[in-house]
Each structure stands twice: as structure tokens, then as C-alpha cells.
């Protein structure tokens, strides 16, 4: 069978014009156009460019949501099996548009998509985690290398073949950690690396250290006496029996449990599901991790107005940052909706 492919390009590559025409809105044409001709030559009989969707870079940048929707509909109307976008080389707005269109295709149409960019294109940082971006040179002169590389990758996806490493398949690193077997054991690799480091020779770490993002500190509570406070823990305290089966490590979920009327996280009703620390102490007195007893006293004394009626709990043991982030956002949204003023989060 011949796969149906739609190509997304900007006004320049469509031959409409340069910067002066960047304001043109989305349009759809049948068949291949501009760089699409080069793809057509590479695809042969295996795939066909059934249509080309064009949008001015300026228009896209200024009307992202609206343009995105229109473009997606135009693409969908061709009933494609896959989409290619660009390549955008080092054109920033074009790269951003290619990335955004590709991401939307992936999320909303669920079909394979490949784009191409120069590594310094700002579109790379924005979209490389979600979209396969083939590495290209910085200008259109690199089209002769970009087209075969992008074609190869999209054909692999269409055929359902596994995607190889960035080096093997020519795409820009997506920041995903993938296991592989080396020729040497880890200890030998470590000693090799140390010998090189000591000699001042070049060496390559197997795990580049990440840089963490920051969140600006929230405003403090001005009137604690009238504040509602919620209790959250990553120490895995759950109602005994762990009703939601929160995993001992690598938790994929968090629990939300009512503590309305609960005066103390006693050992009869609560225990820890955490697999990363000695559970004896937390199980003997769960208040050591989830300090409901003292918070109730403080509530009675009027130090703050109210302890929120639910607590949230998960196991922070090998649990991925992405999961924690998701839990945090969901919990935050709910607390905000319920008028909670501040959170005490305990970790083990």
C-alpha cells in the first residue's frame, strides 16, 4: 500500500514570498510543493504526499491557537497516515510552528509525525521532548541531507519499526533515558573514566547532571489565625490496608483521604506503604510522619483556623519527577478551588 502523507511548510518554502508575506493565513493545496518535491523523489511508490498545508510564520506566531486548529483540520481532511513538517533549519518562527503543528498532530490525530531543525532553533527546546526532530544544518542548503533522514524516520514509524538512538536515526536527543548493554561492566567503565580524568584526557559522563527549574516563592500567609492548612505527605501514610494500593516505590498514584473528625493518625487506622525506609517507627505512631495529633491541638488553640478535611499521600520512593509534578499540580488545583491557604508537606 502507499502511505498518505501531508506536508506542512511556511510561506517562503511554498514560494509565496519572504518576510513581506509572513502574514498569510493557513491554506491547503493538493499534492507536493517546494521541498515536498524532494520528499516525493525519496518516497518513490511507498508513500505519497497527498497534500501540502501552508501558513505564514508571522501569522502562525500571532494567532497560534486559531491557526493551529485550522491547520490541524486541513491536515485531517486529507486523511493522512503521517505528517512531515519543515524542515525549518534555523528559522525560529518556522521551527516553532513546525514543532507546534507536529505536537498537535501527535496528540490530536495520533499519527506519526517528523520535523527537522537545526539544533539551535528555538523550536528544538520547546518541542524535542514530545516530537521527533531530525537534526539539519542551519540553512536550506542542507535540504539534501535533511530529506532522506526525515523520510527514513517517518517510514520507520509507518512500518512500525522500533526507533533507534538519536545517533542511529538522526534525530535530536529527546532527553529520554534508555537502557542498553555495554561491552564492559560498570566498574571497569568507572575505572577507565577515572584514569582518563586523572590524565586530563577527554571523558564522557554516562549521566549528565540536570539543572532544576525554580518556582517563585508564594506569598506568605498574612493572617494565620484565619488560614486553612492542608497536610500532604510523600511518606506513604495511608489508611491501614492501603485501599488504593499505592505502590511501595515508583508510585503511579496518590491517595486522598478524609480526616474530618480524626484527632490523631493512630497506629490502629494508619500505616505506611513506603518501601524506602524502615517502617517500624511510622507504623508504631504514624503521627511521626503525618502529624495530625499536634495539628489538631494547634487548630484548637486557634493558631490557625482549620485543618483541611482531607490529606493527600503518596510514596516518594523512586517515584518519577514527572509523576510527582502531576500529583502536585492536581493537588494544588483542588486545594486552590477549596480555598486552602497553605500546605505543610512532610517527607521521609
Amino acid at each position: 500500500m502507499t502511505y498518505r502523507i501531508v506536508h506542512y511548510i511556511n510561506q517562503f518554502f511554498a514560494g509565496i514570498g519572504g518576510e513581506e508575506k509572513a502574514g498569510v493565513g493557513p491554506e491547503s493545496r493538493n499534492g507536493a510543493l517546494g521541498p515536498g518535491m524532494a520528499f516525493k523523489a525519496v518516497f518513490g511508490n511507498e508513500a505519497e504526499i497527498v497534500g501540502t498545508v501552508i501558513c505564514g510564520d508571522g501569522y502562525f506566531a500571532e494567532n497560534m491557537d486559531e491557526a493551529g486548529e485550522k491547520i490541524l483540520k486541513m491536515i485531517a481532511d486529507f486523511k493522512p497516515d503521517a505528517v512531515i513538517a519543515g524542515p525549518a533549519f534555523n528559522a525560529g518562527r518556522y521551527g516553532t510552528a513546525c514543532g507546534a503543528v507536529s505536537e498537535a498532530v501527535l496528540k490530536k490525530l495520533g499519527i506519526p509525525v517528523v520535523t527537522g531543525m537545526y539544533p539551535e532553533n528555538p523550536g528544538v527546546d520547546m518541542f524535542r521532548k514530545s516530537v521527533y526532530i531530525v537534526e539539519t544544518s542551519d540553512s536550506a542548503r542542507g535540504i539534501k541531507d535533511a530529506v532522506p533522514a526525515m523520510s527514513k524516520l517517518i517510514m520507520k514509524m509507518l512500518r512500525g519499526e522500533p526507533i533507534g538512538s538519536p545517533a542511529d536515526d538522526g534525530y535530536i536527543q529527546r532527553g529520554v533515558r534508555v537502557n542498553r548493554f555495554h561491552d564492559k561492566i560498570g566498574a571497569a567503565r568507572a575505572v577507565d573514566m577515572l584514569v582518563k580524568k586523572l590524565k586530563g584526557e577527554e571523558f564522557k559522563t554516562e549521566y549528565p547532571m540536570p539543572v532544576f527549574d525554580r518556582v517563585p516563592p508564594a506569598e506568605p500567609i498574612k493572617d494565620m489565625k484565619n488560614a486553612v492548612i492542608a497536610l500532604v505527605t510523600s511518606g506513604g501514610i495511608v489508611p491501614k490496608g492501603n485501599p488504593d494500593h499505592i505502590e511501595a516505590s515508583s508510585a503511579s498514584k496518590y491517595g486522598t483521604y478524609s480526616i474530618e473528625g480524626v484527632q490523631s493518625a493512630d497506629e490502629v487506622a494508619y500505616a505506611t506503604a513506603h518501601g524506602g525506609y524502615d517502617p517500624t517507627y511510622a507504623n508504631t505512631d504514624p503521627n511521626r510522619v503525618l502529624p495530625i495529633d499536634v495539628l489538631r491541638e494547634m487548630e484548637k488553640e486557634g493558631m490557625f483556623s482549620k485543618l483541611y478535611d482531607y490529606f493527600f499521600t503518596t510514596v516518594g520512593n523512586g517515584t518519577s519527577v514527572a509523576s510527582s509534578k502531576k500529583f502536585g499540580s492536581e493537588i494544588g488545583e483542588r486545594l486552590k478551588k477549596d480555598g486552602v491557604d497553605a500546605v505543610i508537606l512532610t517527607s521521609t
Binding site: P166, R177, F181, R189
Partner: peptide, 14 residues
């Protein structure tokens, strides 16, 4: 994933 480096398994960024 023995951290004494007993095995050949490793990981890389894709």
C-alpha cells in the same frame, strides 16, 4: 542495576 558496576547494563540519553 548493581551500583558496584557488576553488570554491563547502562543507560544513555535518547
Amino acid at each position: 542495576t548493581c551500583e558496584l558496576g557488576f553488570n554491563k547494563l547502562g543507560a544513555e540519553t535518547w
